[in-house]
Design a protein around this nucleic acid. Sequence first.
DNA 1: TTTATTTACGAAACCGTTTTCGTTAAATGC
DNA 2: GCATTTAACGAAAACGGTTTCGTAAATAAA
Lengths: 341, 341
Amino acid sequence: MRKVNIRELAKELKISVATVSKALRDSHEISEATKKKVVEMASKLNYTPNPYASSLRKKNSKTIGVILPEVADSFFSLAINGIQSVAELKGYHVLIYLSHDKYANEKTIVDDCSSGRVDGVLISISGETCNSDHISKLQNENIPIVFFDREFEGFDTARVITNDYESGYLSAIHLIERGVKRPSFLSISSCLPICKKRVDGFADALEAAGIKKSKQYNPVIYCDGNREQNYQQIKKLIKGRYAPDGIVASVERIAMQVYLASHELNINIPDKLKVIAFSTLETAPILNPSMTTITQPAFEIGKMAAEILFKGIEKTNFDLKHELVIIPSMLIERASTEKRS
Amino acid sequence: MRKVNIRELAKELKISVATVSKALRDSHEISEATKKKVVEMASKLNYTPNPYASSLRKKNSKTIGVILPEVADSFFSLAINGIQSVAELKGYHVLIYLSHDKYANEKTIVDDCSSGRVDGVLISISGETCNSDHISKLQNENIPIVFFDREFEGFDTARVITNDYESGYLSAIHLIERGVKRPSFLSISSCLPICKKRVDGFADALEAAGIKKSKQYNPVIYCDGNREQNYQQIKKLIKGRYAPDGIVASVERIAMQVYLASHELNINIPDKLKVIAFSTLETAPILNPSMTTITQPAFEIGKMAAEILFKGIEKTNFDLKHELVIIPSMLIERASTEKRS
DNA sequence: TTTATTTACGAAACCGTTTTCGTTAAATGC
DNA sequence: GCATTTAACGAAAACGGTTTCGTAAATAAA
């Protein structure tokens, strides 16, 4: 199946390339009769327009870039589905970039996006990102940017996030109401706004409840090493003399490690340790024990972020800076925080 | 930050665009002194080459297309990581397409890929795909194709798969050895080679063990409706009069539904029903009960598939048709198939 | 009937690179 | 000293579309 270009197609039809181009784009300048002939011949000769020639001339790519820390997490899998569902509808292509939660990677990726390769960018920043110069540079190229879930705080563009502070607050209250005296919050980053806000809410709830930090009790713990380091750290924590009797896992990955560690050390959940996790894990209800979660509307966040991005791309007068959508998470109570008498 | 093109860059340097282009691509035709000047000025003027102009001229896009049924499944999340890890190394971009397991979508996507937008395609076919004309068309455009995991049987191109037949056989043996008398295999498609092979292995094991199909006992059941239909079907099956005492779930999604249904109906796993699943679920060890799995090397399959694809793209004399890599799965025994006395 | 407008199409410029094919001057071979 | 190679660069032609602008004929307005 040889590939024909628009010139050969035009020659075959004995009309000009301009006419062919316009006919295929359904221009009003072209008569219905000609359009019909062109479309038929195009399909007969198996003509497909070269997307890069078209992008070059039109100065758009019908492509968006999606920058994620990783895709292992079920949150981002769901978010990709949300994004893709609207991209598909709009006829856009989706370029996936993974930062592996490293700032250096993220910078390289963002720079690549400023080459005109994409018409817009959806980004969830890495846990290491404490500087936004690379994103500013992208914005200066007039490329629409929407943060989803993991925003860079203070950066002036659209963002679609969830109610992290309230959820953090709620997670603490939930544990305290169920008899937890020494709850610990396991965070993964001190930069990441989602973590900071969750921690802030958590800490405020503790203060409201009169629970105080001490030498033996540290309510906020950072697990920012690699997987194995984190696992050892968690094991040490929950079997330690001053172990917490309740844990809030800031992300899915940490929640799973807490479960694994508890199983390994034979620490009963929820009797010895209550666990609540920020997670969209579908298996939460069938875990041993079923896990109480604060579930983010991952699909909706992705979908909404993409919708806003497309408005920014398609409407010239649409100002992304004023867009802020907060879609609330949901606390779903399960056995891992059950109160036993 | 205005965008400058190669022409303005050349004008600023008072040399020709040809020289600039060659200097930036480190051509031997250009002196070191000139190269240095060009690189410096490029960075000073914030020059980034337009990727589409470059693609148009060079007739390659440094982009690969990845076509997946969905990304909800943990197998594909892991596979994406594998693919991305090698694409990153090679400096390629990754375009993700989702077929949502529909043939019609897959066809549209594959057609899009034949426009020259991508230099190669990695594909895991949809459960509905029983015809390969669209893929043949792509192959006729000389675009390298590698199947991973879900191949189209008989199609002549590279494939990276796992040992599905053996795994199916093993799954049956595993159940039978643990006392299961009436094992059922829950498949999702009669087209999909991975399912067919798993079923074949399973059926052969049953025959070897002398277990026969009867009016009351159907060893192979197809769950090919939507999510809710499948769930109802599974519930009906396991609470029915002729319910199986062991189940092989052909994919993760089905396994989760079996668990959920068992929980809802208070059917004890593994006492009343033993369950083994084809799955890469990280939470398998902490499920209630922990789940015996046949775990596919998802990351490795993605990685290997991508590596082979790049060989096909970069080496003109490399024949993809002879490439077949089989990476074995691993049976990991856990509580869901435990034999109780 | 004359002028203005509309319709349908084509020639050519343009998008921003890369690459081919000179060309000139310096270096080398003999 | 002359022919030949080599080094370093530039002009211009691609790549394959889209868009602007012009134009001829057909139609409408005057």
